[in-house]
Design a protein around this nucleic acid. Structure first.
Length: 815
RNA sequence: GCCGAGAUGGUGGAAUGGCAGACACGCUAGCUUGAGGGGCUAGUGAACUUUAUCGUUCGUGAGAGUUCAAAUCUCUCUCUCGGCACCA
């Protein structure tokens, strides 16, 4: 009697052995083709929950599969360790963010090791270590040198709970992406990265194997629209500006302008407002400012505004157009000013209705009879009331009008984007300090590269006040100017943590490199990543920023590629009680208890088996025992003695076994490549079920049986690495199964000799015949029509057509 | 409102034009066993038929269509999830 499968014992044993043997250390000098299997590193929140396992375990399976296929695989792991939660937790518990973060890393590293993944821990990266953030700061300097960094006073998104500004990408439905607090606005002087310079490139994904969903989200985020910028004349002696510029996608409707709307923040508002309108305008500006992003953006929010008392001149027809302010006009998009064409824009139509402004049709709707419109007409049509452009199709008129305007210097064709520059300043302690110095004499001066890192002082009082805690650390703030040597003050804001994660995948290539952020040779070898897996929630954050970094580095001549991740795959979310897992909701599922009860291999297999990886699902552990049982059955199949060849020729033959074996190899390999782990495991289950039958049948010789078991173990090795290693060793095969070559299928052995031929009458299944696989069409049709079961349905009827699908079915159409 | 994904047994899911429900979970029965959601075997979409187990009909959110053939393709609609949302 063999002893039972005891996961906790064998998992600890093999993890130790693999670590001792450095089995998974990725070597730069390995001559085999490289494979960079990248998994999003976790934030150091404290505990790995089952969702982390769902991200980590299948990606490890795929990396292991690539190993066995003969690749030199880099599968690194690290920790995204800066950020507000560390600071908040530390404040709550009165401990230092570093202490909190490091103890979390301890725990998470232990949990990660329990997965049994092939992480190369010698390449671990922790973003809050000075050896790392030194280079994050270096990137800031390089982007500064490249002209991609600037400082500007701007209305910014403010999270009152985090007490810090947020980038646009980090505002989700008007709320902070991390703490879900409604975001308000503030005017602050902040650091920005000019990500908009790469707008066009960021919306393209040529040659990338990425989910369509993510590509579309990124393209929508960039929000490119083509149109024209054109100016309206201003004629006020005491106002120095002589025009107001607007952006429009519909230059064809410029003859239909009946008002202009400025954003409340538009710089001309105060200059133009007349004395009579001053009070109303000031009150409106005040109201608009107090509105949170949510209120302002809510669909129900009525479009309102106030007349400024001033007028602009529509240069095309010389009309005076009243200037209003309205908070539906965004200061940050286009020019912050909109031409109001009520007849051809839904918002303008509503606005005009409310304030009794004229609705002038300039693009005739189909069959228009000249009567007033009941709603805005936004489609194309024939031009009317537009001087010399009358009669033209509106699409053509748009181009003609743009050209007309351009010739007179009143405007030009242009492109506008929704994407805004990346705001990276954060008024918090736990982040990489921005390596800049404010000198009274020299202005803003970058810290010298040799003086990096600008160390985060340990002794800060890090209570959030709305200002950076670093402001109150005199020893940090007071420095000398790198340029003139005089007294100067350091920048006290820290960097958005997304900066740290925008380049960590480069650091893995040469994690200990001291002469730069990365060793160009190592990066040349490993990058770009062949596959990147992680949650889809970072579509317009991390993934977007990383692409920006990569492109900027390419243009600096520091990288010879512009896309960091060739293939992207987003696993779904594991919810619990149909809600996202979070500590505050108290619905976090800890994998540790399952691992200690049933072993990592069972948990790995279960997570992959519950459904398509991209789909996720609600956590329900009721099926996990099925997977544990399955491994137990394979344990017996492989290890319990088998005396084959008993019935000699009866029952299942060695040929049947080899055919099923090769079919399984084909299915498993194909599913692996497609990351279809659920069907991959189903295929393995079918194979083990078949082996059970073979064993019961007893007609296959021992050596054939053994060979099939060997194949099963190899195919199972990525999924259940400890289990496969243990059984492999017990069968006396050489260590390690993970260094074995991935099995290949033989096309000749895959094909069945006999196949079931489906026979339908009028599309309904009537019989199934076992026929030779290479049956010809005529015989197949003949056999089908001669079937007794079929003849019941064809008797007395006329055969109209007989459809034959080779190797599959015959459909007899009768009447 | 716009964009994207989806809806299949009691449950998770399989099948991407050709046998619907693979593979599991659960359940039922039997065997085994000293119990602790133990092991093994068989059955398990629904209805009908039948004390003949053979068969028939229906069935993939709803409705139409294309096709010899539709879960799969097309159109319309409903619902669910995700994203974007006054972008001029």
């Amino acid at each position: 009697m063999i002893d039972k499968y005891n996961p906790s014992e064998i998992e600890a044993k093999w993890q130790q052995r693999w670590a001792d043997d450095n089995l998974y250390q990725a070597r730069d000098d390995d001559p085999r083709p490289k494979w960079y299997a990248l998994t999003m590193f976790p934030y150091t929140s404290g505990d790995l929950h089952i969702g982390h396992w769902y991200a980590m375990a299948p990606s490890d399976v795929y990396a292991r599969f690539k190993c066995m296929q003969g690749y030199n695989v880099l599968h690194p792991m690290g920790f995204d360790a800066f950020g507000f939660p560390a600071e908040n937790a530390a404040i709550k518990r009165g401990i230092h963010p570093r202490t909190w973060t490091m103890s979390n890393i301890e725990n998470m590293r232990r949990q990660l090791k329990s997965i049994g993944a092939i992480y190369d821990w010698s390449r671990e990266v922790i973003t809050c270590e000075p050896e790392y953030y030194r280079w994050t700061q270096w990137f800031f300097l390089k982007l500064w040198e490249a002209g991609l960094t600037y400082r500007a006073k701007a209305p910014v998104n403010w999270c009152p709970n985090c007490q810090a500004v947020l980038a646009n990408e980090q505002v989700v439905n008007g709320e902070c992406w991390r703490c879900e607090t409604p975001v308000t606005r503030r005017d602050l002087e902040q650091w920005f990265f000019r990500i908009t310079k790469y707008a066009d490139e960021l919306m393209k994904h040529d040659g990338l194997d990425w989910p369509e969903r993510i590509k579309i989200m990124q393209a929508n985020w960039v929000g490119r629209s083509e149109g024209a910028e054109l100016s309206f004349g201003l004629d006020y002696p005491d106002v120095e500006e002589k025009e107001i510029r607007v952006f429009t996608t519909r230059p064809d409707t410029v003859f239909g302008v009946s008002f202009m709307a400025l954003a409340p923040e538009h710089p001309l508002v105060r200059k133009l407002t007349t004395a009579e309108q001053r009070d109303a305008v000031e009150a409106y500006i005040d109201k608009a400012r107090r509105r949170t992003e949510i209120e302002r953006l809510s669909a129900e929010h009525e479009k309102d505004g106030v007349f400024t008392g001033a007028y602009v001149i529509n240069r095309l027809n010389g009309e005076n157009v009243p200037i209003w302010i309205a908070d539906y006009v965004l200061a940050s998009y286009g020019t912050g000013a909109v031409m109001g064409v009520p007849a051809h824009d839904e918002r303008d139509f509503i606005f005009a209705g409310k304030y009794k402004l004229p609705v002038k049709v300039v693009v005739a709707p189909p069959d228009w009879n000249g009567r007033p419109l009941a709603e805005a007409y936004t489609g194309p049509g024939e031009m009317v009331h537009s001087d010399s452009f009358d009669g033209m199709p509106s699409e053509q008129a748009g181009i003609k009008i743009s050209e007309f305007i351009a010739r007179r210097g009143w405007g030009r064709r242009t492109v506008s984007y929704k994407l805004r520059d990346w705001l990276i300043s954060r008024q918090r302690y736990w982040g990489a300090p921005i390596p800049m110095v404010h000198c009274e004499k020299c202005g803003i001066v970058p810290v010298l590269e040799k003086d990096l890192p600008v160390l985060l002082p340990e002794n800060a009082e890090f209570k959030p006040t709305g200002e950076s805690p670093l402001k109150y650390v005199d020893s940090f703030v007071n420095t000398v100017c790198p340029q003139c040597g005089g007294a100067a003050k350091r920048e006290t804001d820290t960097m958005d943590t997304f900066m740290c994660s925008s380049w960590y995948f480069l650091r893995y290539a040469s994690p200990l490199y001291a002469d730069g952020a990365f060793n160009p040779d190592a990066v040349g070898k490993w990058l770009p990543a062949d596959i990147y897996t992680g949650g889809g929630e970072h579509a317009v954050m991390h993934l977007f920023y990383s692409r920006f970094f990569t492109k900027a580095l390419r243009d600096m001549g520091r990288l010879d590629f512009g896309e960091p991740f060739l293939r992207l795959f987003n696993q779904g979310t594991i919810t619990h009680d149909h809600q996202k897992m979070s500590k505050s909701k108290g619905n976090v599922v800890n994998p540790d208890k399952y691992v200690s009860a049933m072993g990592a291999d069972t948990v790995r297999a279960y997570l992959m088996f519950i459904g398509p990886w991209e789909q996720g699902g609600d956590w329900d552990d009721s099926g996990i025992y099925g997977l544990a049982r399955w491994l137990g059955r394979i344990w017996s199949l492989a290890l319990e003695p088998y005396e084959g060849g008993a019935c000699g020729g009866e029952g299942l033959s060695p040929k049947d076994l080899s055919r099923v074996t090769h079919q399984t190899i084909r299915r498993v390999t194909g599913d692996m490549e497609k990351l279809r782990f659920n069907t991959m495991i189903a295929a393995l289950m079918e194979f083990s079920n078949f082996l059970g039958k073979v064993r019961e049948n007893g007609s296959v010789p021992v050596e054939d049986y053994r060979e099939a078991v060997r194949v099963l173990l190899k195919l199972l090795a990525p999924t259940a690495p400890h289990f496969a290693e243990e059984v492999w060793a017990r069968l006396g095969y050489a260590y390690s199964i993970h260094n074995q070559k991935w099995p290949e299928w033989d096309a000749a052995l895959v094909e069945d000799e006999e196949i079931p031929l489906v026979v339908q009458v009028n599309g309904k299944l009537r019989d199934r015949l076992m026929v030779a696989a290479n049956i010809d069409e005529a015989s197949a049709k003949k056999l089908a029509q001669e079937s007794e079961k079929v003849m019941v349905y064809t008797a007395g009827k006329t055969v109209i057509q007989v459809v034959y699908v080779p190797g599959k079915l015959v459909n007899i159409v009768v009447k």
